[in-house]
């Protein structure tokens, strides 16, 4: 017990208490220059019930879901191929390197390639195809592209681990029993790597929901997400109750999502 005291205490003081503080602050009155008045108020939440906010919330949800979907679609065959490959250690290393690479550098790489002054636009200008530039970035699809790019390794790794653990003979048995390869994929592989699939989806969906840097750097005014709004409320708008309220809602959504997701997938495994 004594060994875990410092660990627990640290997380309680610097993680649990701050969460409780923002939850409490979301029900308090704002003061004009940041900070709160200690009297109960629902203003923080009421200010969220505007068309603008609902739009940002909705955009956050759909961008995250589409990004996750695309990521998983590409991660599955890749993880499968790597798990069965003769060079799996080397291929895994190729996936792990971007995983360890600084996320800002990965965002920068896309700005460098696709930006208004990026190499593609410079090239197009050079060969005279465009006068000034084509705007590839600063829209929701650019945000999705970079989210997929950033979180693909996070999705591939748990899927790879799940597939690698599987006994190859279950596929042989399926094929032996007259299953086509395509059917074996859906009827044998997918049900047996459910835990890995759930982990992959969580690893992509949750950080996507909380994206800040990606929409900030490659999104335009029409592609701001909840994370950007939290930062705006906190820094420029100086509305702490509103920032706390959005944070509390985002926390709640992610927690509920994870709980429902993990529970439902557990149930299916048990059934």
């Amino acid at each position: 017990m004594k060994y875990i005291t410092a660990y627990t205490l640290w997380l309680v003081v610097f993680f649990v208490i701050p969460l409780i503080i923002i939850l409490s602050f979301s029900f308090l009155e704002k003061t004009p220059y940041g900070g709160v008045n200690f009297s109960f108020s629902l203003e923080g939440y009421k200010s969220l019930l505007t068309i603008g906010y609902l739009r940002i919330l909705w955009r956050t949800v759909w961008i995250s879901i589409i990004s996750t979907f695309i990521t998983i679609i590409f991660a599955l065959p890749t993880a499968y191929y790597i798990a069965k490959s003769k060079f799996k250690n080397f291929l895994l290393l190729l996936v792990v390197i971007p995983f360890w690479t600084n996320s800002l550098i990965r965002i920068y790489a896309w700005i460098f390639v696709l930006g208004n002054n990026g190499i593609i636009n410079q090239f197009l200008k050079l060969i005279g195809l465009v006068d000034s530039h084509i705007q590839f970035l600063y829209n929701p699809w650019a945000v999705i592209l970079v989210i997929v790019y950033t979180y693909l390794p996070y999705a591939i790794i748990p899927l790879y681990a799940a597939i690698e653990r599987l006994d190859n003979s279950i596929f042989e048995a399926a094929l032996d029993l007259g299953c086509s390869k395509r059917k074996a994929f859906f009827k044998v592989l997918i049900p047996n790597i459910k835990a890995g699939l759930v982990a992959s989806i969580i690893f992509v969906l949750i950080p996507a929901m909380g994206s800040y840097a990606i929409p900030d750097l490659v999104g335009g005014v029409n592609s701001k997400m909840i994370g950007n709004e939290i930062a705006r409320q906190l820094t420029t708008a100086k509305n702490w109750p509103a920032a706390s309220a959005i944070s509390s809602i985002l926390t709640l959504i992610t927690l509920l999502g994870v709980i429902i997701f993990v529970k439902s997938s557990k149930k299916e495994v048990l059934n």
Binding site: F15, L19, I22, G210, L250, V258
Partner: peptide
């Protein structure tokens, strides 16, 4: 599980 931004803000 909780997004980084929430940890930062809190």
């Amino acid at each position: 599980i909780i997004p980084d931004i929430i940890i930062g803000v809190s």
